[in-house]
Write a protein that binds this DNA or RNA. Structure first.
Length: 480
RNA sequence: CGGGGCGUGGCUCAGCCUGGUAGAGCGCCUGGUUCGGGACCAGGAGGCCGGAGGUUCGAAUCCUCUCGCCCCGACCA
């Protein structure tokens, strides 16, 4: 047996991840463009499926898609004090265009709150213009120091929703509604369980009043922020003079929200389910759900096998691997690495018996069934796989979540955790929402991931850093 | 930007110390035999050794400069 091209998870989780991305034909480093990647057909197809799931939900909630410019006047970024401070280090700036130095440089958008604020101020005069609910599918650029494919690249794809409301309650409702959409897609489409919560003040989006996130746990126990939804308050309204006249005839600044998920989700998907044999995709996000590998020795076997393969493929919506010059074994490995949920083997023996062999990607189990039962059985298997992937991810999250009662205990649990070696945990401990406490955790490279919206633990008690009373435990972890 | 490493066929690398006709494995192409978990045989294509300068009769190899990439640290969806 040939050596696997994939580093086992236990040996080096980071190397394993790279191998799975590459071998699964999801993406490859751009090389010639620092920190960027090429998303390949198999990866982009997953993104398209995710886009469809999200887009449908956004539209059901009344949002419309729009598109704002990639280039943003540099001065815009500076209008919101916290925002510029947060993004300044990672901006790419265009200073020359058309062969001439620009009077005012453009930044390539790292996010679009500022330029959208500008247009909101033009569009909004009255409470009757509100709410505005828009979303854009776009690319953004953030000059990151350390990149990893899908998880953090210089350029990435995402959606950013932007809404404006006449009061804070309504804006906050929007923020939480979207957080629910994200959690729904993560759990029910991606089979990736998440914890909904509020970011600590130290970790919130630059310019937001509060940020909310969904956090998930990867197989190495590291946390991944899978989506964020921001309550921007009136900060951008003030910065961009987005005013409206309310029912009482008074001028007020709008209350805004913004929210996004990115191609990072694909990284999360990979690190949630894949194994040492390669990519594992939940059926709902698998571009190809089943592949038939035809098996034949002699020419007189080839005809009937291919004929049956095509007929069955049509019936159940599978793809037939017709490549010449590859043995069936090589084909099995090929599709396995690419995360196809089900591989169907069809050879002379099956033609004779009217059967077909079905192999499930996640469990590796094989079953022989009558061709006539395949359609129903395939649907059931895909359904079961979707459910089982979520169940096992939930179990892993549960198994690797612990409580701690002192800062020393937290440090002891997390100090030796790395992306390569793994061993990460979600440590539930009481920590006050104070940047000084976040700083204390940072001493051993851990962060407050979020403060869960739903307290599933034992309520309030004393902060392990300051000793002050807090009302619940927060999620502490090392993260991507 | 600090510390470490690396640039040689498409990929992974050997060769460099001790200068003398550019190599291996994988992949690719052709033909044949194979095919129920990574097939085999035969033939073949493919490289100004990252770039520039220098030393030398002669440089992948020695010297100087340069460019780029990867890893570790400080920032982050």
């Amino acid at each position: 047996m040939a050596e696997s091209p994939i580093t086992p998870r236990g040996k080096d989780f980071a190397a394993w991840y790279q191998d799975v991305v590459l071998q699964g034909d999801m993406a490859e480093p751009a090389e010639i463009v620092k920190g960027c990647m090429v998303i390949k057909a198999n990866g982009y197809a997953v993104w398209e499926l995710l886009q469809k799931e999200l887009d449908t939900r956004f539209k059901e909630l009344g949002h419309s898609n729009v598109y704002f410019p990639l280039l943003i006047p540099q001065s815009f970024l500076k209008k919101e004090a916290e925002h510029v401070e947060g993004f300044a280090p990672e901006l790419a700036v265009v200073t020359i265009a058309g062969g001439k130095e620009l009077e005012e440089p453009y930044v390539i958008r790292p996010t679009s709150e500022t330029i959208i604020g500008h247009f909101f101020s033009k569009w909004i005069q009255s409470w009757r213009d509100l709410p505005i609910l828009v979303n854009q599918w776009a690319n953004v650029v953030r000059w990151e120091l350390r990149t990893r494919m899908f998880l953090r690249t210089t350029e990435f794809l995402w959606q950013e929703g932007h809404t404006a409301h006449s009061n804070h309650d309504e804006a906050l409702e929007e923020v939480l509604r979207i957080l629910d959409v994200y959690a729904d897609v993560a759990e029910n489409v991606m089979a990736m369980p998440v914890i909904k919560g509020v970011k600590s003040r130290a970790e919130k989006f630059a310019g937001a009043l509060r940020s909310y996130s969904i956090e998930s746990m990867m197989q190495n126990g590291l946390a991944l922020q899978a989506g964020t939804s921001h309550d921007l308050g009136q900060n951008f309204g003030r910065a961009f003079d987005v005013k409206f006249q309310n029912k009482e005839g008074q001028l007020d600044y709008v209350w805004q929200t913004s929210w996004g998920v990115s191609t990072r989700l694909i990284g999360g998907l990979i690190m949630s389910h894949s194994d040492d044999k390669g990519l594992v995709l939940p059926p709902r996000l698998a571009p190809v759900k089943a592949v038939i590998v035809p098996i034949y020795r002699k020419d007189e076997e080839k005809g009937p096998v291919l004929e049956a393969a095509h007929r069955i493929a049509k019936e159940v919506g599978a793809k037939v691997d017709l490549r010449e010059g590859h043995s069936p074994g090589a084909k099995f490995f090929h599709w396995e690495r690419r995360g196809v949920p089900v591989v169907l083997e069809l050879g002379p023996r099956d033609i004779a018996s009217g059967n077909i062999v079905l192999k499930r990607r996640d469990t590796g189990t094989k079953e022989v069934l009558a061709q006539t039962d395949l359609s129903a059985r395939l649907a059931a298997v895909l359904d079961a796989m979707q459910g089982d992937l979520l169940a096992s991810a939930k179990q892993r999250l549960k198994d690797n979540t612990v409580t701690a009662e002192s800062i020393g205990e937290v440090e002891e649990i997390l100090k030796n955790v790395t992306a390569e070696k793994g061993g990460g945990k979600f440590v539930m401990a009481r920590v006050k929402d104070d940047p000084a406490c976040d700083a204390r955790l940072k001493e051993f490279k851990a962060t407050v991931r979020n403060i869960p919206l739903v307290d599933e633990y034992d309520g309030g008690g004393k902060c392990i850093v300051t000793g002050e009373e807090v009302d619940r435990r927060v999620v502490i972890a090392k993260s991507y």
